[in-house]
């Protein structure tokens, strides 16, 4: 069962906008309210909109279970890997080794009240991206699994 043409067209138009808004929340997690989990949940809401609007066969052409599960696994592995990389710098696990170092995300921090600079905060944005990718894949694949239970009834 697919929903009416109005719902399908609205889902088509809204899905890229929701995707970009979620990625914005993930990428600006260290400056504005939000973060990895919230941004991933927003993107998963867009996936849920598409899944509810179409039926199972059409959805699995867009959203592949393999890709989403791979996102989930690679997000978790990346999160642990960013933490473990601190050992290579001679620090303890989860140490923020990039802050103030001048490389990626390592700009010197403007102190006090400021509008914020995207290129700061060390490993916090990297961890935000890892958790965001994990939550995106995980929460979308849960709804896809729910829908796969209905596959026999042609829904």
């Amino acid at each position: 069962m697919r929903m009416s043409k109005i719902v399908r067209t609205a889902a088509d138009i809204l899905y890229p906008a929701i995707l970009i808004f979620g990625l914005y929340i993930v990428a600006h997690g260290h400056l504005t309210p939000g973060g990895g989990f919230q941004g991933g949940a927003v993107i998963a809401t867009g996936g849920a909109l598409v899944i509810v609007a179409y039926n199972y066969k059409e959805v699995t052409g867009w959203l592949k279970k393999n890709v989403l599960t791979g996102q989930e696994v690679s997000g978790l592995v990346g999160f642990i890997g960013v933490g473990l990389l601190a050992l290579a710098f001679g620090q303890v696990f989860f140490f923020n080794y990039l802050v103030g170092s001048g490389s990626i995300f390592g700009m010197p921090v403007p102190y006090g009240i400021n509008p914020g600079e995207l290129n700061t905060a060390g490993i916090v944005p990297l961890m935000n991206f890892a958790v965001g990718i994990e939550v995106w894949g995980g929460l979308t694949v849960v709804i896809l699994y729910m829908l796969s239970g209905l596959e026999k009834e042609g829904c």
């Binding site: 997690g29 939000g34 802050v99 060390g122």
Partner: peptide, 11 residues
Amino acid sequence: QELTGSNNECT
């Protein structure tokens, strides 16, 4: 803010 470089204290 000084230790982590992030403006959002929650994160």
